[in-house]
């Protein structure tokens, strides 16, 4: 568990660099909020308090990474309570929750407080003395333009390299692809992550968005844009790979990742929201038991797979 924590540090660092103390506040409130909620729930249910296992803290950090840097304190705190109480403990705690707790909280907040959850700001790197100024995320910018004019915006604010290093508007953890990839590489090295879900997820997004882009580059953004903006990398490496809520077999993981990718592109291109990663992962979380059932590995020596029902 601690390795997952360390792997998120670069992303947190970049967020604090670009968004300053407000990002740090969100991170702290979310983490402490999750730890406290877990302790209170377990106390109330008369169970041993297991906050030292690190899982609640990780949920907190992941939640913070999925929130806008300007989130008010009560929004963050509410999110932590939802994540742990409704996303995890009502199902019986660690290992029993069907949905990724941090994403449950994010989506509940997004639907209940759309204004606060979609108020994004321009990064103001530490030391520049700038204040955080409200703006749209690149995906939001594109979606607005398409909704209004049916075309790509003429001049997007950012460049691909800015997106890659994290100099764009977005939630705390999704802005720097580089920092996220560093963390993911560490998890691969520690063999906590396997490649199946992230590769299937990102691969599907790149392929499918590439198809649309080839057909109509005037309307649809190119795959690199899809890859570097929004929560794709954060979602594919750190949210979709949550072991508790994803399938156990290799085949199942590939199917799960592909489904996430498919839904993400469909929501981004045709849905009401500019970003679809969270919804896609939650929908696939719901499909996980079904996927597990139909992708049972073939038992050694079985002539044909029995009993998948």
């Amino acid at each position: 568990m601690h390795a997952v924590f360390y792997s998120l540090l670069p992303a947190c660092g970049v967020a604090v660099y670009f968004f300053g103390p407000s990002a740090l506040t969100v991170l702290l409130i979310a983490t402490l909020g999750c730890l406290a909620t877990e302790a209170v729930c377990q106390r109330l249910m008369g169970q041993p308090v297991t906050i030292v296992d690190g899982s609640a803290a990780i949920t907190g950090v992941l939640l913070a990474l999925n929130l806008p840097p300007t989130s008010p304190w009560w929004l963050t705190l509410l999110g932590s309570v939802i994540a742990i109480a409704i996303g995890k403990q009502v199902y019986g705690g660690l290992g029993s929750n069907p949905f990724n707790p941090a994403l449950v909280a994010r989506v509940v907040l997004l639907i209940s407080f759309p204004v606060q959850m979609t108020t994004w700001s321009v990064p103001a790197p530490l030391g520049t003395g700038l204040d955080l100024v409200t703006t749209a995320t690149p995906l939001g910018e594109w979606k607005n333009a398409v909704m209004l004019t049916g075309k790509m915006p003429v001049d997007m604010q950012g460049s691909m390299s800015e997106y890659f290093f994290g100099n764009m508007a977005g939630s705390i953890g999704e802005i720097s692809a580089l920092a996220l990839l560093l963390g993911a590489a560490y998890l691969f090295y520690k063999r906590i992550l396997t490649w199946h879900i992230p590769v299937a997820f990102i691969g599907t997004v790149v392929l499918l968005s590439g198809l649309f882009w080839l057909v109509n580059p005037g309307k649809y953004p190119d795959p690199v844009f899809h890859l570097l903006t929004g929560g794709l990398i954060l979602g594919a490496f750190f949210m979709a790979t949550d072991m508790v809520t994803s399938p156990v077999s290799v085949k199942g993981m590939l199917l799960f990742g592909t489904g996430c990718g498919l839904l993400t592109v469909l929501i981004r291109l045709f849905g009401g929201y500019p970003e679809g990663v969270s919804f896609a992962i939650l929908l696939m979380n719901a499909a996980t038991p079904l996927i597990d059932r139909y992708t049972r590995p073939k038992t050694f020596g079985a002539l044909s797979q029995r009993g998948t029902q």
Partner: peptide
């Protein structure tokens, strides 16, 4: 013993 976290290492 802890709860199963569905890590699939056993699989």
């Amino acid at each position: 013993e802890g709860p199963c976290i569905r890590c699939a290492r056993c699989v």
